[in-house]
Amino acid sequence: MRHLRALCAIADTGSLHKAARFLGMSQPSLTTQLRRIEHALGAELFTRGRTGCRPTPLGRVVLSRARPLVAQMGLLVSEARAAAARADGARLRVGSTASRALAGWLRRLRQRLPGTDITLHMDVSANGLLRALAAGQLDVAFVHEVEGCPLQVPDGLERRVLVEREPQFISMARDHPAAAAPVVDITDLAEDRWMVDPTVDGEWDGLRRVLGAAGIDPPLMHADYHTAASLIVAGEAVAPCQPTSGPRDDMAIRPLRDDPLAVRLLLYHRPGDEGAALYGTAYAALAAAYREAALRTSAYRHWLQRHGTPLPCPG
């Protein structure tokens, strides 16, 4: 089953790197595993190229048999875990992409659901979290959908919209010339190196679309945002960031004029399962935590006041 799950993950993500992240393993380990599978079968199952991994004709045949087996095993595991949860007490398995509201959300969940076993699984891939939710590995998933890049939502999931359109701000060095203004024109950053994390679903495509619409083609750098912070502070790059990002002495965070970059914030669940009864509580706690994070950040608070944008209501 481990081999079959790996093949399905590679096919679903179209990338060894993304599949390895979804499976919680290193890319070299997954590459070695794939080579062993192909060696055992005597033929390649995927073609590798600059655009990613694509199943060969034999790969499609193998996947057509593997997917039902993986799905049935996932269902078996889900039902067994649900039975165990009923025996051991209430449980809520939370999945989330990165958010400043996360700590406040968990704190409120523990306050509102005493005695409930609450666990957290974080992933940069919203699509990976939704697949885990559909497979019964999570009860709720809080995800970001980049504007213009719809998520790949498995059948059977339901959602509530937390924020219809959250603007993405820009982070830059404190002494960057554009930081002198309260609002930054994207064209003022045409000569800067832009940093983007290609493992975040939709991030690269969304940024490329916005830069193209602005008529600029700045140099780009692929890196994760934690690694890039030191480069931004040193003036080597600028990067999009969440508007709830807290102020830093060595970094400036500003809104972009006309808010060309945006995401939609969504909370998903599976109706009818054991965690569905807790879904309303999870949403209310998340809405309260997001309001707290938004109002704590002066730049975002002022943006909300200027635009008259309502925050999500915990009720």
Rank of each mutant, 00 (worst) to 15 (best):
M1N: 03
R2P: 00
R2V: 10
R2K: 11
A9R: 01
D12M: 08
G14P: 07
S15R: 04
S15Q: 07
S15K: 06
A20F: 04
S26V: 02
S26E: 13
P28K: 09
Q33D: 11
R36S: 12
R36K: 14
R36P: 00
R36I: 02
R36C: 06
F46K: 02
R48Q: 14
G52R: 03
T56K: 10
G59R: 06
G59W: 10
R60Q: 14
R60D: 13
V61K: 12
L63W: 11
L63N: 05
R67V: 14
L69N: 01
L75R: 15
E79N: 11
A83N: 08
A87P: 04
G89T: 10
G89Q: 11
R93M: 10
V94M: 03
T97Y: 00
L102R: 13
R108N: 02
R108W: 04
R110A: 12
Q111R: 15
P114W: 11
T116H: 04
L120A: 09
R131G: 10
R131K: 06
A132F: 01
L133G: 11
L133P: 11
A135I: 02
V140Y: 07
V140P: 02
F142C: 04
V146W: 08
L151Y: 08
E158T: 14
R159S: 12
V163I: 15
E164L: 09
D175F: 12
D175T: 14
H176L: 09
A178K: 07
A180Y: 01
A181C: 13
V183K: 08
I186C: 05
L189H: 08
A190P: 07
D197V: 00
P198F: 07
T199F: 00
G202F: 08
G206V: 03
G206T: 00
G206K: 00
R208E: 13
G212P: 02
D224N: 15
D224G: 11
D224Q: 07
A229Q: 13
I232C: 12
I232R: 10
E236S: 12
V238P: 03
V238R: 03
G246F: 09
P247E: 02
R248M: 10
M251V: 13
L256G: 04
R257P: 03
D258G: 01
A262R: 08
V263Y: 00
R264P: 05
R264Y: 08
L265D: 02
L266G: 01
Y268C: 02
R270H: 14
G272Y: 09
E274D: 15
G275W: 00
A276K: 04
L278H: 12
Y279V: 11
T281L: 02
A289G: 04
A294P: 03
A294D: 05
R296P: 00
W303R: 07
L304A: 07
Q305G: 06
Q305I: 09
Q305Y: 04
R306L: 10
H307K: 10
C313I: 07
P314H: 06
P314K: 06
